[in-house]
Each structure stands twice: as structure tokens, then as C-alpha cells.
Amino acid sequence: MSTTATDPIRDYIVQEFLAGEDAADLTDDFDLIESTVVNSLGLVRLISWISETYGIPVDDIPLEPAAYRTLADIRRFVSEAAPAAV
């Protein structure tokens, strides 16, 4: 579980999808898709943020929700696609 301020992915999710809410329960394995915290529209925003933040071309980013189910999934994808960034 990672809750420090040095976790930009988590910070982004909290700021963008859980603004003003208690995010203490947001663990690395919390299912963002199943819980609808990230819905289909949110997924589009998330992908574009990843693309911009980590310099990964949008075309290289898979669109299926399963790739972003949890914080751990997103982190794993980013570290594989842009190893220098994380």
C-alpha cells in the first residue's frame, strides 16, 4: 500500500475521481473499474493523462479497462511502457 505524496498516479486518481472524499481505503488492489470510480468516460481521461504525463503515445496505450483495474495495474503498465518515468 502506497499512500505517500510521492505517488503521482494515486494522487491523480484521488484528485480527479475522488475529490473531497475519504480516500484512505484506496489500496493498490482496490478495483477502480468494478466500483465505477473510473467509468468509461473517466478511462478516457485517465489514458490521456498517462499519455501526457509519461510521454507515452496514446496509440501505445491499451484501451481495455482491464489494464487499469487497480493502482497496481496502472503502475505496472506505466513502468513497462515508460521505464524512465517511474
Partner: peptide, 25 residues
């Protein structure tokens, strides 16, 4: 009960479109 816990609960019991996109406790 946290807002995330309640979202997860709502997602189990409601169609996706009906799950509130924000929850204030």
C-alpha cells in the same frame, strides 16, 4: 463505512449508470 466502500456496494447492487459518481459521507 467509507465512500469507497459504499461505491463498491452500490456497484454490486446497481447498474453501472446508476452508481453515483460521487459520494459524500
Amino acid at each position: 463505512l467509507s465512500s469507497l466502500g459504499l461505491r463498491a456496494y452500490a456497484a454490486k447492487h446497481l447498474p453501472r449508470h446508476a452508481v453515483p459518481s460521487s459520494v459524500a459521507l
